[in-house]
């Protein structure tokens, strides 16, 4: 049962962030970037589908039930994934912190004792390497750009910073899975993550936030007020017309 909930947690992370990125479709600053954000959203949606598919094989529900027929307290994504990002700098500040984490996490998950998870990790790792390239390019460009872009990127980092610590917590249900090699230990990834992020942030002439606050709760279904609105939009159609095909 706990491998199932761990897989659903990873799937929820990917689905929710994929949806957040898809909100930029048609709104990015220019056409090329619009396509880039939509492509990353599709990478994440693809990852979510693979993980929900695996969850179903482990005895869970099907992907549509997971995505469309659960309410916010049933979602177990970490909070950093669900934060709204109506400012381009916020979108990429959050994206960078997650992309660097994903590169480390999926690299480690490739060694999972669970063959399906290891396979999904291999695909996700390659995507994450590319995502880091793109988000770090924006961090650099906005941080080392104009006074305004610098100020907004610094503010964006401050705004999302307190949500990153949750990435490195192992839920209590996962402890035995970490012990038997099904999942990587999130806590040990923190040092490499902090070093990489510090290097990128400083190269972008920005300052690593002081980090004296943190918010957590996503894995146990305790969410920010923003997730409900996200789900309302994402789930509207299948909930209004149950069973509809489109």
């Amino acid at each position: 049962m706990s491998l199932l909930s761990a897989v659903v947690g990873l799937a929820d992370d990917a689905l929710v962030l994929g949806h957040r990125l898809s909100e930029w479709c048609g709104k990015a600053p220019f056409l090329e970037e619009d396509l880039a954000m939509a492509n990353t959203a599709l990478d994440l949606l693809g990852r979510a589908r693979l993980l929900y598919g695996h969850a179903e094989k482990l005895g869970g529900s099907n992907e549509d039930e997971y995505a469309f027929l659960r309410d916010a307290p049933d979602f177990t994504n970490l909070l950093i994934y669900e934060l709204p990002a109506s400012d381009f700098a916020t979108a990429y500040a959050r994206q960078l912190l997650i992309d660097v984490f994903d590169e480390l996490y999926f690299d480690a998950l490739q060694g999972s004792q669970d063959d399906t998870l290891a396979g999904i990790a291999a695909k996700s790792y390659k995507e994450a390497v590319y995502h880091v390239r793109h988000s770090s390019a924006w961090l650099l460009r906005l941080g080392d750009g104009t006074d305004e872009s610098h100020a907004r990127m610094q503010q964006a980092l401050e705004d999302v910073w307190g949500y990153h610590l949750e990435l490195f917590e192992n839920p209590s249900a996962d402890v035995s899975l970490v012990a038997n090699g099904a999942l990587p230990d999130r806590a040990v990834l923190k040092a490499a993550w902090s070093e990489r992020v510090r290097e990128l942030v400083e190269r972008a002439t920005l300052t690593v936030p002081a980090g004296n606050w943190s918010v957590a709760g996503g894995r146990t279904g305790v969410h920010t007020e923003h997730l409900g609105f996200l789900l309302a939009e994402m789930q509207h159609l299948p909930r209004t017309y149950p069973g509809v095909n489109w």
């Binding site: 090329e32 970037e33 396509l35 880039a36 492509n39 590319y130 460009r141």
Partner: peptide
């Protein structure tokens, strides 16, 4: 063709637009 701030970003957008 595409528009980009510089060659590095042009390469990333080329990947996004023409090789997906």
């Amino acid at each position: 063709s595409l528009r980009a701030q510089d060659a590095e970003m042009a390469m990333q957008y080329a990947r996004e637009i023409y090789t997906r």
